[in-house]
């Protein structure tokens, strides 16, 4: 970015911040990842689709905001928010203390737990992981869970995307992966996931998914209000049923 453009942006941002909120809310830019089916993914025609995208659109409708949804690589998604490239992240982001230090979260819009995935033919069991090679996506709850709880016993491998972790599970480099349960549920039903299954019980880590906004941004209140509205009028349930036969709230 040129200095001139940077200055112009800074002025614009300052103006936006000082302007009455109603004005600023007219346009809301929302980031999602686009590589986390069925929550956010890019379909054959190049459009962003999925649970997160549907929720984002429903919220925008309630807020009467003019929204644009953009795709952003996962490990740059919080820095991008802080750099004001967009105003909110609706990308199945877990609410964690570490993230809460740098961003504010809305009320949760669904809950997640972790689970091990391994080939059906494998005897892998979460009770005996010693010496195994286990993968997860970098910068995710699953990745942190692996590093915090298992890194002394297993070899941890971190991937840029969930898809790459699946690829390495099929190549046999990984004995298992730790993944969020819901997207893994979706993957196991796909053609690629036929030879794999959940191993052991799901790991409840009190993982709540929220919408991230910049610290002290009033957008958070608007999002919470809109979220209550779609929960109350059945919009949320309709979106939920489109992707999962059970409630994920």
């Amino acid at each position: 970015m040129s200095l001139k453009k940077a200055l112009a942006t800074a002025t614009l941002v300052a103006a936006t911040v000082s302007a009455p909120f109603a004005l600023a809310a007219d346009k809301v830019r929302i980031a999602t990842e686009g590589a986390y089916a069925p929550f956010n993914f890019i379909d054959e025609s190049g459009k962003l689709k999925g649970f997160d995208v549907d929720i984002a659109n429903a919220l925008c409708e309630k807020m009467k905001a003019d929204c644009t949804i953009v795709a952003q690589d996962w490990d740059g998604i919080i820095p991008g928010l802080m750099a004001r490239k967009y105003d909110a992240i609706i990308a199945s982001m877990s609410i964690t203390p570490e993230r809460s230090r740098v961003v504010d979260f809305s009320d949760p819009y669904y809950s997640n737990s972790l689970i091990f995935v391994a080939p059906k033919s494998s005897k892998f069991s979460p009770a005996q992981v010693k010496g195994k090679v286990i993968g997860a996506q970098r910068a995710t709850i699953a990745g942190q869970y692996l590093e915090d709880n298992l890194s002394s016993k297993v070899t941890v491998k971190l991937y840029d995307t969930q898809d790459n972790a699946y690829l390495d599970l099929s190549s046999g480099r990984l004995d298992a992966i730790v993944s969020d349960q819901l997207p893994a549920y979706d993957w196991l039903r796909s053609k690629e996931g036929q030879a794999y299954e959940f191993k052991g019980e799901k790991i409840d880590i009190d993982d709540k998914i929220g919408i991230a906004v910049r610290k002290n941004d009033k957008l958070r209140e608007k999002m919470n209000k809109a979220l209550q509205d779609i929960l109350a009028d059945g919009t949320y349930d309709r979106i939920n049923a489109k992707y999962f036969p059970f409630s994920i709230y």
Partner: peptide, 19 residues
Amino acid sequence: TITLLDLTGMARTVIARTY
């Protein structure tokens, strides 16, 4: 990008925790 913790990989892994 292939799970190696070289300088960039290590930096990205640290950033994933510290933001």
